[in-house]
Design a protein around this nucleic acid. Sequence first.
DNA 1: GTCTATACAAAGATAGAC
DNA 2: GTCTATCTTTGTATAGAC
Lengths: 208, 208
Amino acid sequence: MWSTHDMGPPLRLTRAAAKARTRELLLAAAAQVFAEHGYAGASVDEIAAQAGYTIGALYSHFSGKDELFLTLFDLHAAGHLRDIEEIIRQCTGDPDFTALGDYLATLADNDSCRWALESEFRRHAMTRPELMARLAERRAAGQTAIAGLMPCRRPGTAQCAEDDAALVITQLEGLILQRRLNPASVPPGLFAEALRRFFPPPTWAGGG
Amino acid sequence: MWSTHDMGPPLRLTRAAAKARTRELLLAAAAQVFAEHGYAGASVDEIAAQAGYTIGALYSHFSGKDELFLTLFDLHAAGHLRDIEEIIRQCTGDPDFTALGDYLATLADNDSCRWALESEFRRHAMTRPELMARLAERRAAGQTAIAGLMPCRRPGTAQCAEDDAALVITQLEGLILQRRLNPASVPPGLFAEALRRFFPPPTWAGGG
DNA sequence: GTCTATACAAAGATAGAC
DNA sequence: GTCTATCTTTGTATAGAC
C-alpha cells in the first residue's frame, strides 16, 4: 500500500501537470457554458461547477470571466486552423469529394457546443472592434491556406485564388451552420456537391 | 391656442397609434441592445432608456424580456423573407449580377446591428430546440422561394433545386457575414461572382 | 490549490402614485 | 400609459480558512 488512507496509487501527476489539468477542465467547462448561455448569460459559478470545482479554484487559474473567454477565443482559432489543414489533407486522393463531404458533415454533427460557441464569438466580435480584428486575422490565415489549393480561373492574378478561397470557406461554413439547424436540409452529399463546383475534375463528364 | 399650457398642436396620434408607436420604439431599441450585448447581457432598463422610456413603460407593453426577444425573433423572419423577395426581383434583367452584387454588399454594410442580432438568434436557437425549429422553418421557406429560380442540373428532381437553393443561401449569407468582419475580403464583385456560379449565362463565353 | 463565506453591484419584475 | 420606488435574486469578485 502506498498510504494509510485508501487513496489508490499516488497520483502520477506532478503539481504542474495537475494544475494544467484543472485549467483544461475549466476551459472545457467554460466552452460548454458560454456556448449554451452566451458570454453574459454564463456565470463563473456554473462554469466552475461544470468542471467539478468552485469559484475559488477558477479565480486561482484565471483573472476572471473575461480572461476565460478570451483564452477560449484564441484556442478556437488554433482548432479552426487544424480543421482547415485536415480538409486540405483530405483533398488529395478524393477526386469526387465523397470522403471529404462525409468528414464535413461529421464535423458539423459532433461538438454540439462548438458551433454555438463560434456563433457567440462572431456576435461578440461584431460589436467589439479589437475582437473583430483578431477574428478577421485568423480567418484571413485560413483563407490563404485554402487559396493555395485553388485552380486559378484567370491565371496570373493571385487575388483570384484568394477570392475563390473566400467563397469556399463561406460556403462550407454556411453549410455546416445550416446543417446544425436542420440536418435533413444539408446531407453529406451536398458538401461534396459544393466542393465539386469549386474544384472541377480534370476531365469533363459530358452528360449523356 | 389649443390649451392653457404651451403644448403646441394637439398630438395628431390617436391613443392606439401612440401606443403602437411606443411599442415600435421599444422594439427598435431592443434590437439594438440585444445585438450589442446578446440576450442575457441586454438589460430591460437599457432597452427602455434607449427608446426614451423607463422600465415601467416597457412592462406595460411586453410581459418581459423574453416576450420582447421572441417578438423580435419573429419580426426578423418577416424581414428575411422580404430580402429574399427583393433578391429574386432583382435577378430578372441583371444577367451578370452586377447590380445584385452591389445590393447584397449594401445589405451587409447597412443595419450594422441587424447581423449581430441574427447571429444572436442563431446562437440562441442552437441551444433551444423550439427556437431551432422555428428558425429552421423560416429558412426552409426562404430556400423554397429561391429554389423556384434554380436552373435544374438534373431535370426531373425537385430535390435538386432545393439543394442548389440551400447552396446559394448559405453562400450569400456566409459572404455577408464575412463582409461584416472584413469588408475588404468580400468586395461587391465577389457576390456577383458567386451568383454567376449558380446561374450560368445562357450563352457560353468561350475563353479567348 | 481549493473551498467557504461574504461584500457589493446589477438586473428582472412588481406595486402604487400620477 | 408612464414613472418612481422597492423587493428579490443572481452574479462577480475577494478574503481567509485549510
